[in-house]
């Protein structure tokens, strides 16, 4: 809205009611987004007894760190963390390199196979082999129980390739290519010397999209991984949070003598675990969210 129009506008009575409704809706929505998160944080800092008696509603009751102590003593969780960091780092690196390369080639209008490659990529957005054929193929490639089953199959996302292509086309001036040509530069030199340095924002968009997908996914590990030592964090979380497989026998907290307390503690542990596993993402996302927004916006331009 134009600044002049806004300044000249008086807020009428009707508009006040309308704005009131708008803010009410936004308020309710934001509170319902935040409440579950606050609730989990508060539970994680409460005492096991207060939690199990359903006394935690908004703020921690009888605050303590017992849940966190139990989490930090659980070796499985840290192994999962380590595996996830490795899978995410390797997968993001491979995915980003392949995606930006494909995006660059497709951004060149003179590339003869452009339409054919675009079609081949687009089809993958709507159709796939399905669970079993893919599983058998991965098995055939001897990738079961290796990091490759997790990082390779999703390494080229057609959507991100198209987002990258649109970005390169719209933000890197064609004159730069002509200048490179005049200097006797080749396509590969243009890619490494000009595109890559100038495409940093889109590299961030692509890399972060792959990273969050890999960090949060459990599906491929569920299907392809059977060796517990290679489980990523999300599988460990599923075992403990959803399937209640928690082993407290090794917990060094020696005062666990009653069965009941043990059970209470295993419930409390879940809240602390939710925080320990989600806090890194939630702490970082306000600073990187612009790259996700950018991805959606560039993707929308393409339609």
């Amino acid at each position: 809205m134009g600044l002049a129009a806004r300044r000249g506008m008086k807020i009428s009575g009707r508009d006040k009611i309308f704005l009131g409704i708008v803010y009410l809706f936004l308020g309710i929505f934001v509170i319902s987004i935040l409440y579950p998160l606050i609730y989990v944080v508060s539970c994680s800092f409460s005492s096991p007894e207060a939690l199990m008696q359903g006394r935690v509603v908004l703020l921690p009751v009888n605050p303590g760190l017992q849940g966190y102590k139990t989490v930090f003593q659980n070796a499985k969780i840290w192994l999962g963390y380590k595996n996830t960091i490795i899978y995410t780092a390797v997968g993001t690196l491979i995915g980003t390199m392949l995606t930006i390369t494909a995006a660059y080639v497709l951004s060149r209008r003179e590339f003869p196979a452009r339409n054919f490659v675009t079609l081949i990529f687009t089809i993958t957005m709507f159709f796939g082999g399905g669970t079993i054929p893919t599983y058998l193929w991965i098995k055939n490639l001897h990738m079961l129980n290796t990091i490759w089953a997790i990082v390779l199959p999703g390494a080229v996302s057609a959507w991100l390739v198209f987002v990258g292509k649109t970005f390169i086309r719209s933000s890197i001036p064609e004159e730069l290519f002509e200048a490179t040509c005049l200097d006797g530069g080749s396509y590969i030199q243009f890619f490494t010397k000009v595109i890559l340095p100038l495409a940093k924002p889109i590299l961030a968009v692509v890399a972060l999209n792959y990273a969050i997908g890999l960090w949060n996914s459990y599906y491929s590990a569920l299907i392809y991984m059977s060796d517990a030592g290679k489980y990523p964090l999300q599988i460990i979380l599923r075992d403990i949070l959803i399937q209640n497989q928690v082993d407290l026998t090794k917990a060094a907290t020696l005062d666990i003598n009653s069965q009941q307390h043990k059970q209470y503690l295993s419930e409390l542990l879940k809240y602390s675990l939710i925080i320990v596993s989600s806090a890194p993402m939630l702490a970082v996302y306000p600073f990187i969210q612009k790259y996700f927004i950018k991805g959606v916006m560039i993707g929308a331009v393409k339609g």
Binding site: L98, P112, F121, F127, G128, G129, P133, T134, S186, I188
Partner: peptide
């Protein structure tokens, strides 16, 4: 020069064929 473009596209393209298209033929299962 186009050869360079084909070379660059080769790896991502092969990836898509291996991990998206080969399983599609598995649908005959």
């Amino acid at each position: 020069r186009y050869i360079q473009l084909y070379l660059l596209m080769a790896i991502p393209f092969v990836f898509v064929v291996i991990f998206n298209y080969v399983p599609m033929f598995g649908i005959t299962l």
